[in-house]
Amino acid sequence: MRPAVRCFGLAAPLLLAASVAHGIEQGEPRSGIAFASPETRAMQADDTANPGLFWVLDGEQLWAKREGAAQKSCGDCHGAASASMKGIAARYPAFDDKTGQAVDLTGRINLCRTRHQQATPLPHEGKEMLALTAFVGFQSRGLPMAPPADPRLAPARAQGEALFTQRMGQLDLSCANCHEANWQGRLGGSPITQGQSNAYPLYRLEWQGLGSLQRRMRACMVGVRAEPFDYGAPEFVALEAFLATRAKGLPVETPGVRP
């Protein structure tokens, strides 16, 4: 008995190191698509069947649309998204110098609108914002998630990890209880998955629509009977910043398809 305890004592720091590096203690990160049915996988893989492509096409139109008092389009500053936005979504959330905070893609688009287009921010889960984030994310499709080695993001990532492991709600469950410790299991018959963030915004058949990672996290929080954070809350951006480090290396799938 005693040697086993001693072994665990030695192994614990190694396990901790592994969880900091990957967020997943056993093996490599695995995209949610690996847990989906063959039909759902086929729908995501075929651009003529993937409903998320409609949002991508809408986003392409919005990219070129002049907005706000400045009457500037995204393209007026950034040029062709196929070049300027390639790899951007794979690196978000990023650090914003002016606010001194981590910012996700949704937040960045709204900062662009207020700072450069002199336009009003778009609602977080509205059709236009989802279309723009889907379009920008699509430019990184197939590229590995590559969270930047920016030490200024460390506080947000640490806050995100703390939230990820905090038990919440009347059911007293953390994200990690399911998506870290039990991702190979089934909850009420459905695969749990690792809760990876590499396919957002994504089309969920259950939603009959496209939704953001924050919408998905709010659904989990409601599920454990916790008060969800508001859309755009710093807590959600912190969680996204942590999840990006956890998803490092997974290919961007935007727009993903999930059950």
């Binding site: 919440m168 709600g169 916790a226 008060e227 969800p228």
Partner: peptide
């Protein structure tokens, strides 16, 4: 009573 954080209303 649950010990979890942020128990919804």
């Amino acid at each position: 009573v649950a010990p979890g954080a942020r128990v919804a209303g």
